[in-house]
């Protein structure tokens, strides 16, 4: 507990001051020394606060104050009730709005899909590490999509996944009925997440490759000598050896999914079909920009903020635990 630790460090000062007075033996010299040390102690006591003040002020003025304003706005009304306190009305409305519930449900879906999003770069990095034929080529190719902007990626996949697009043409040539990839509410969200994973897994791949650099090659050799198969090597040697890297990729991938899918959603589905691909971010944008409901958007932002706090705390917990294991 930081608060508990802080208290003893300020207590000795008053104790030192009362010490001589209690004994009744204070001479002029002793008094001078006490005064001098009293001034020095005060400067020492304030110095840390002064030194951190600029950083604290910036955070308070540019982060916390707007944040509190935003939370405050979320308790006021829109339109004719502009500026009036409405208590929890906005939150009540949000939880009655099937669209917002869909958006929260999709956050849950993202969490469920997270292992897949982590496993793909993990497996591909493993193959590169194990030097499959052409691994140098693949290393470059896998990273390539990471440099494209979401808007460009979205536009490319809009063409590929169109009803009369090339993917359906390929399927038709092998006798499969065409699928409306971005127009079927049961499929569209998976397509968007899939494209997001395709566009961003290059970064995670690089992190995995860095993790592999710290892996002890002797362990792999030992496993091979003992006759372990490839799946056994992956499961019993590589995964335990990379546990910290895997945890890190888990957390960063989740944050990436929750905060940077807007561009793809905007370009690929506009939240549709039937509202099935809404995420909280997109909902906030629609309410503030299109529906002219800034207070409702503030309430939705507050909820997204709380979700992100929970994710952030989990992240800290995971990283701390990983640090302890070390």
């Amino acid at each position: 507990m930081p608060i508990g630790n802080a208290q003893p460090s300020v207590r000795p000062a008053p104790a030192g001051r009362t010490g001589p007075a209690r004994g009744g033996l204070s001479t002029e010299r002793a008094g001078n020394r006490a005064r001098r040390s009293r001034g020095g102690a005060r400067a020492e006591r304030f110095a840390p606060y002064i030194l951190v003040a600029p950083a604290v002020l910036i955070i308070v003025a540019l982060r916390l104050y707007p944040l509190i304003l935003g939370v405050n706005f979320s308790f006021t009304g829109d339109g004719v009730r502009n500026g009036l306190a409405v208590g929890l009305d906005n939150y009540r409305e949000l939880f009655h709005d099937p669209l917002f519930r869909t958006a929260l449900g999709n956050v849950g879906l993202l969490v469920l899909l997270l292992p897949v999003a982590v496993a793909i770069p993990g497996l591909l990095a493993t193959f590169i590490y194990l030097r499959v034929p052409g691994h140098r080529f693949y290393r470059g190719v896998y990273f390539f999509p990471a440099v494209l902007s979401p808007v460009i990626v979205g536009a490319i996949f809009n063409l590929l996944l169109a009803f009369d697009g090339p993917l359906n043409a390929v399927l038709a040539s092998v006798g499969v009925r065409p699928v409306d990839w971005l127009g079927d509410p049961d499929v569209a969200m998976f397509m968007v997440v899939g494209v997001h994973v395709w566009a961003t897994f290059g970064m995670a791949l690089v992190v995995f490759l860095a993790g592999f650099a710290t892996l002890d090659a002797a362990l792999l050799d030992a496993a091979r000598v003992d006759g372990a198969s490839l799946p056994q090597v992956i499961w019993h040697v590589i995964v335990p050896g990379l546990s910290r890297t895997i945890q890190f990729v888990f957390v960063t991938t989740l944050i990436g999914m929750l905060t940077s899918m807007f561009g793809l959603l905007f370009v690929m589905t506009s939240g549709g079909p039937e509202g099935s691909t809404y995420l909280p971010e997109y909902y906030i944008w629609i309410q503030q920009g299109q529906m002219n409901r800034p207070a409702l958007a503030s309430a939705a932002s507050t909820i997204l903020f709380v979700i992100m706090i929970v994710v952030g705390l989990l992240q800290i917990k995971l990283l701390k635990r990983a640090g302890r294991e070390d």
Binding site: M1, I3, I68, L69, V71, N72, F73, F75, T76, D78, N82, G83, L84, A85, V86, G87, L88, P294, A295, S298
Partner: peptide, 27 residues
């Protein structure tokens, strides 16, 4: 820990009750 929870509760309650200011400035 208790103190922190108390402060958060006070902050949330205060904001919920007050709800002052507005999202779109009327003046």
């Amino acid at each position: 820990m208790k103190q922190r929870a108390l402060w958060s509760a006070v902050l949330v309650a205060g904001l919920a009750l007050a709800g002052c200011g507005s999202a779109t400035d009327s003046d």
